[in-house]
Structure formats: C-alpha cells, structure tokens
Design a binder for these strands. Structure first.
Length: 293
DNA sequence: AGGATCGCTATAAATCACCT
DNA sequence: AGGTGATTTATAGCGATCCT
C-alpha cells in the first residue's frame, strides 16, 4: 500500500533522533516497527536489513530507509560504524520527538508483511517512490552535523536540524532522480536535450520522436512516463525557465519572446503567466504593472 | 507477456484579429 | 503591455493490432 507523503517543497521534516555509533557483530534490532521513519547509513562494516520479505545487504556508503508500519530486522554482520537517523516527513514543530517509547517489538512472523512504500511528488519531475536501499556515499560530514546539533542542543538546534534534514533529503532526491535521468538518456534523452538546447524551435512531436527513433504516439506515452509531463509542457517550462533569466537580465519582453521562438508576444505572456502565475513584467516587478492589490 | 505501431477522436494548444 | 474569444491545428489517450 503506497503512501503519498506530498510534494517536496511542502515537506516540513523533523529529526527525532540522530546518532553515530559502532555495533559489534551479531547486534540486532527487531523484528520491530517504528512510529516514524528511519535512515540507516553504514560508514564502515556491514549490516543486513530484513524488511518484510525482502533482504538488503548494507555496505559502506549505502543506506536503507523505511517508515512506520514496515516490520523489519536490522542485523550487524561485521563490526560496523553507522549513523542512525529517525525523522518525520511532516511535523508542525521541528522539536525532536524521540521514537523510543513507541517502537513495537514484533513476532518473527510479522516479517512476512510487505514494507510500506513512500511516494514523493517532485514539481517538474515525475512522482518518485523512495527506495528502501540505495548508495549515497560521502554523507558523513552532513550526518555528523546533524548528530552534533541533536546532541548539543545549542540555541536554535531544532530549527537548524530541520534545515540540515532538508539538505539531506534534497541531496537524496537528486541522487535518486539522477538515476532516472541516466535511464532516460537511452530513450527520450535526445528529445530532452534538443528542447533544452534549442527552445526557440517549434518542436513537433513527430520531429522529437524521430530523434529518438520511435513512433509519435508511442513516444508521447514514453515521454509522459519518464519526464512526468508531455513534450509540449516540457518545452513551455523550458522556455519559461530561460525567460526568467532573460527578464532578470533586463531584456525586453518583445525580444525574449522572439528569442524563445514565439511568433506572438501575447501567446508568450499567457504561457508565462500560466507557468509562473505572473505576467513577464510582474515577474520583473516593473512599477505600475502589478494587478495584485 | 509486453514492447512497439497504427488509427481514431475529444480536447487542449496555437494562432489570429480585435479589445482595454 | 497585456487580455479575450473565435477559429485552426496538434496531440493525449485509448483500444486494436502487430511483432518477438
């Protein structure tokens, strides 16, 4: 049963617990389930996670992730240095709520239950499913900062913990989507690159599908699946993205519209407004053009 | 079974001419 | 500069069908 945790920029995550420690061979946690989410990162050594019916081997530089209602058993295979992070995706206040007293020990048969999938919406990208096991090397410095803030409780620590957790989540999301991008290169990559490089051209689906070697209608289906939007909208978004930069550099709206391949300035404006909620001149904050009050 | 293609149609996008 | 509405054009989305 997948669970949608909402849209990335609307998350207000909170760290509930953070530690770095070392565990001896044979140490294990569970079978159990936790009230929040856990991120377990191995620095050195080796651990295994049995998550429902699936088993993952966690080596240095790798992490596992799971949420509530996900029976699991975490076992240390060799002496292991690790970071353990408990957190929630949404919390009105960033103050840590230690999960300990709500951790439930479960009978071994509970491990037949499949782990809960977490889905995250990422604006401008397809919805992603948070992987349970992934590589994310080089996270020690950031995790160290999180642990320090958590332990020292200096003034403003909970606020800072939320900021650091947001950074960690952002880096993870970029890692996960980079994999998508690589996969994409083989199928719709040529079309994505073409639109980014020449947003001024009036790309038709037929042309784009030709670049990738597919039939137009099959191509749009593929495109939607992999880019999370249709080719036209992708092109419009790309044009608006570039238009914003041009606007801030002070170019005239007329010339921006032409450079981005619009034959009608009016059509450019309506595209821009649909995408950003503002007209081009409002975006540039020109005096006397604001329609808001 | 599932990846790829074809053909159709409702619908959305694009354009044009004119308006504020 | 930017909006509106009518008309033209492209395509998303679907099922049927063909490959392998």
């Amino acid at each position: 049963m997948p669970m949608n945790i909402g849209s990335l920029p609307e998350l207000a995550p909170a760290v509930n617990y953070a530690s770095r420690s070392r565990a001896a061979k044979g140490t294990s946690w569970g079978p159990r389930q936790i009230p929040d989410c856990q991120w377990f990162y191995v620095v050195a050594g080796e651990a295994t996670l049995q998550l429902g019916p699936d088993t993952y081997k966690i080596e240095p530089g790798e992490c596992v992730f799971y949420g509530a209602r996900s029976p699991h058993l975490l076992t240390i295979v060799r002496p292991t240095d690790y970071y353990s992070l408990h957190f929630s995706w949404q919390a009105s206040a960033p103050e840590p709520v230690h999960p300990a007293y709500r951790i439930e020990t479960l009978p071994a048969k509970a491990l037949s239950l499949k782990a809960e999938q977490h889905r995250l919406d990422i604006p401008g990208h397809a919805e992603i499913t948070i992987p349970h096991h992934f590589r994310m090397p080089g996270m020690e410095p950031l995790l160290d900062e999180i642990v320090k803030e958590y332990e020292h409780e200096h003034l403003g620590f909970s606020f800072q913990l939320r900021a650091l957790l947001m950074e960690l989540i952002t880096l993870a999301v970029r890692q996960w989507t980079a994999r998508d991008t690589a996969e994409r290169i083989g199928k719709i990559g040529p079309a994505l690159r073409a639109m980014r490089e020449r947003p001024d051209r009036n790309w038709s689906v037929t042309e784009l599908s030709g670049l990738c070697g597919y039939h137009p209608s099959y191509f749009t289906k593929l495109f939607n699946k992999e880019a999370g939007t249709n080719p036209k909208q992708f092109l419009v978004a790309e044009r608006v993205k570039q238009a914003k930069q041009m606007l801030l550099r002070g170019e005239s709206i007329q010339s921006i519209s032409e450079r981005l391949g619009y034959s009608s300035l009016h059509y450019f404006s309506s595209n821009f407004k649909k995408e950003t909620g503002l007209t081009p001149s409002e975006f540039r904050q020109e005096p006397g053009t604001s329609s808001e009050r």
